[in-house]
């Protein structure tokens, strides 16, 4: 078996789309509705540097109606081909993206991303942030979905505080690390301790 670029683009998707997408969505829904909780997301094997969890998010949520921004490092030909084949999402600039994928440093400045409008706060970007580390330590979280408080290893605090300060505007974030995922909606208050 060769593993040429076209082969790689065609493989690595869900083997049973309706069922795996349903399972994947519930994991994402669980993560976003309970900020700080970490869920597992399997089934996708995208080309590096995209993590399996981010790959599954792409298969669950992206299609030809969702403009996607690939940050530097994730805009490789192999990954572009994989996303094109499996989702058909058009690749666009950061300012017009509905979804964005990359590491936290590569996504900077995050002020570029759509935060919705006062009339339509839902027209905001979802950032898929690839991290090396994802655990229940670090920034303290309060807000909807959290019974008392939770902790999540965030790449920084200030940007997420500023993002929450604009509520109901703001972007929403999914953190991915290997096959694990956590959610941080704009409704969550973030404190350094």
């Amino acid at each position: 078996m060769t593993n040429s670029a076209p082969d790689r683009a065609l493989s690595g998707g869900f083997s049973d789309m309706p069922v795996e997408a349903a399972q994947g969505f519930r994991s994402v829904l669980d993560a976003l509705s309970r900020p700080g909780s970490i869920v597992r997301l399997n089934g996708a094997t995208p080309p590096a540097p995209m993590s399996p969890a981010a790959g599954a998010v792409a298969l669950v949520l992206l299609d030809n109606t969702t403009p996607l921004y690939l940050a530097p490092g994730h805009d490789t030909p192999a990954l572009c081909a994989w996303i094109a084949f499996h989702t058909g999402a058009p690749l666009v600039s950061a300012e017009t993206a509905m979804f964005a994928l990359g590491t936290w440093p590569a996504l900077q400045p995050v002020s570029r991303f759509a935060i919705g409008t006062a009339d339509y706060p839902d027209r905001a970007a979802t950032l898929i942030v690839e991290t090396d580390r994802l655990d229940s330590s670090g920034g303290r979280l309060h807000g909807p979905g959290i019974e008392t408080s939770a902790r999540l290893s965030l790449p920084e605090i200030a940007a997420f505080r500023a993002n929450h300060a604009r509520f109901p505007l703001g972007f929403d974030t999914l953190f991915t690390c290997g096959d694990r995922l956590a959610g941080l909606p704009r409704s969550t208050q973030v404190e350094s301790d």
């Binding site: 789309m17 349903a22 994402v28 949520l61 992206l62 839902d122 979905g145 929403d172």
Partner: peptide
């Protein structure tokens, strides 16, 4: 169909992010 479910799922996630909207 899967396209419709994706569209509804994206709406549900935004609804969760902005409670009550």
């Amino acid at each position: 169909d899967e396209g419709t479910k994706r569209m509804i799922r994206r709406a549900i996630l935004k609804a969760v992010a902005v409670p009550g909207y």
